[in-house]
């Protein structure tokens, strides 16, 4: 008994394996006419090394939930821990990287200098900055474009640059809000595979918002199906597919079975409306 106590006390409130832990979390936006229940009683645990997708129709709160994890929105009630601390502390410790729907690169900075920005802000040494930038631009295949300005590149290349920028800080957690939503399907397929490679190579925890079922199936280890009014989690599906995936996987029965399970979960909920 006595031997156990210090161990328990030293532990963070969440278990060592969990990256994000959400308990009974609700978020209500005060609108002019009636309050909007953006998130209602969310319970979710995301383990380290997982690739978790939030999927659901518009207004289901998937982006809001991601923003709560990133400390960009504040929960009205409930509890949330990111890496064992509050989202605010996680943000101040630069524990996560966030990739937005749009690349959000600064047009007056080159790709290299855009990637350097988060490291400039956290005052890292120039040599470290350059090493990180070279490593991750190589990883996303933009090493030859490092001196270009964002507006000289295509949309897909810009989004790749923004992923490299997020990776440069070496965050344990990567939050992505429909990062490929604005791209054509061919570019999207390509970037999905690139993202899987990066995830496998770095072993980071990934939380990915999407409204594309095939994308969610292809990428995730866990799929969180969400529903609007009020925004809530309908079902969490653990993917039976192998962690290492290829595009060819999309033609297998297992893939179709998982896709139809998600579609069903989304449809069942709509009948309730």
């Amino acid at each position: 008994m006595n031997a156990l106590h210090p161990d328990v006390m030293n532990r963070p409130t969440t278990s060592g394996r969990s990256m994000v832990e959400v308990n009974n979390l609700s978020l209500i936006f005060e609108a002019n006419d009636a309050p909007v229940h953006a998130l209602s009683e969310i319970n979710l645990t995301i383990h380290k090394g997982d690739f978790v997708s939030f999927i659901g129709p518009s207004g289901c709160g998937k982006t809001t939930l991601l923003r709560v994890i990133a400390d960009l929105e504040q929960a009205t009630s409930g509890e949330i821990k990111v890496g064992g601390t509050s989202p605010n502390d996680a943000r101040l410790n630069r524990m996560y990287g966030y990739v937005f729907q749009a690349p959000a690169l600064f047009p007056w900075r080159t790709i290299r200098s855009n990637c350097a920005l988060p490291m400039e802000i956290s005052a890292q040494s120039k040599t470290h900055q350059h090493a990180q930038i070279d490593k991750y631009l190589q990883m996303v295949g933009l090493q030859d474009f490092h001196n270009k300005f964002p507006w000289q590149l295509s949309g897909g290349m810009q989004q790749r640059a923004s992923i490299a920028r997020a990776l440069c800080l070496e965050p344990e957690l990567l939050l992505m809000d429909e990062p490929f939503g604005a791209l054509d399907e061919i570019t999207r397929d390509h970037l999905n595979i690139e993202l899987l490679k990066i995830w496998e190579a770095t072993g980071k925890t990934l939380v990915f918002v999407t409204h594309s079922i095939p994308e969610a199936v292809l990428l995730s280890t866990h799929i969180v199906v969400m529903s609007p009014r009020p925004g809530r989690i309908v079902k969490v599906i653990e993917s039976p597919l192998p962690r290492h995936k290829t595009l060819a996987l999309r033609d297998t029965d297992a893939f179709h079975a998982l896709a139809s399970e998600i579609r069903q979960a989304l449809a069942e909920d709509h009948q309730l409306d």
Binding site: L72, R91, R94, Y98, F100, F106, P118, E120, I121, S122
Partner: peptide, 19 residues
């Protein structure tokens, strides 16, 4: 989006202003 981005970087007020 740029404002959100700077927030996620935990940038200080003067960093947000100048960068």
């Amino acid at each position: 989006l740029h404002a959100d981005l700077m927030h996620t970087y935990a940038a200080g007020k003067s960093q947000i202003f100048f960068k």
